[in-house]
Amino acid sequence: MVGRYPDFDVFDAVETWDHATRKVIEDRMALAGRPLRFFTPEEEPTLRAFCDTVMAQDDEPRVPVAEFVDDKLAAGRLDGYQYADMPDDRETWRLVLAGLDEAARDRFGAEGFAAADPTGREEVVDALAAGKLSGGSWERLNVTRAWSVVMHAVLTGFYSHPWAWNEIGFGGPAYPRGFMRLGPVSTLEPFESPGATQEDPVRIVAEGEV
């Protein structure tokens, strides 16, 4: 994906971040490549294939989404609620990964979700997003809610990473620096740079150009 903010890097301002924030972000970046603690070696390929598919990450370097999710679940950092018709989030994740493998086997005769080709994986995820998977592990879940539970964790992992902020032109941590140029006439801070392009995503997605 072509970067919209080629001249922007949140790390240019790293010296202005407070030490507590900087440590949290550096720890998060250090998750990359760390062995998984919550998911089993058997679950790992499915987890990675799922995170790659839903975040359209098909190349290195990757934002370590799988490691983020694993760390969150291993540490028990849950979100404070559990739907009455759903298991605990940790159990939900295991069931979703098992269900993805089952769907790939049923649909394509693939060994598992990770072994399916990209188009096949997207077809399965499409069905999951639409709540249209059933049988096997899916019978133990409310499929629509399972999608929102897993995607909440995946999106938090991806968009908490500085590389994602660079892609979207987000200013990142802002304490104690703050902002002096709020608008309202599109003024930018010296460390912000305008987008190089400005395609309307609604049109691009609607016309199938992604």
């Binding site: 994906m1 970067g3 919209r4 598919t53 839903v54 975040m55 359209a56 997207e122 995820v125 997003a129 995607m151 968009y159 994602a164 892609e167 979207i168 032109g169 987000f170 987008g195 400005q198 395609e199 309307d200 995503p201 609604v202 691009i204 997605v205 992604v210």
Partner: peptide
């Protein structure tokens, strides 16, 4: 939206 469509929407965040 998810996948490539989501990334496309997201990089338009500032608009």
């Amino acid at each position: 939206h998810w996948g490539r469509a989501l990334r496309e929407y997201m990089r338009d965040y500032n608009h």
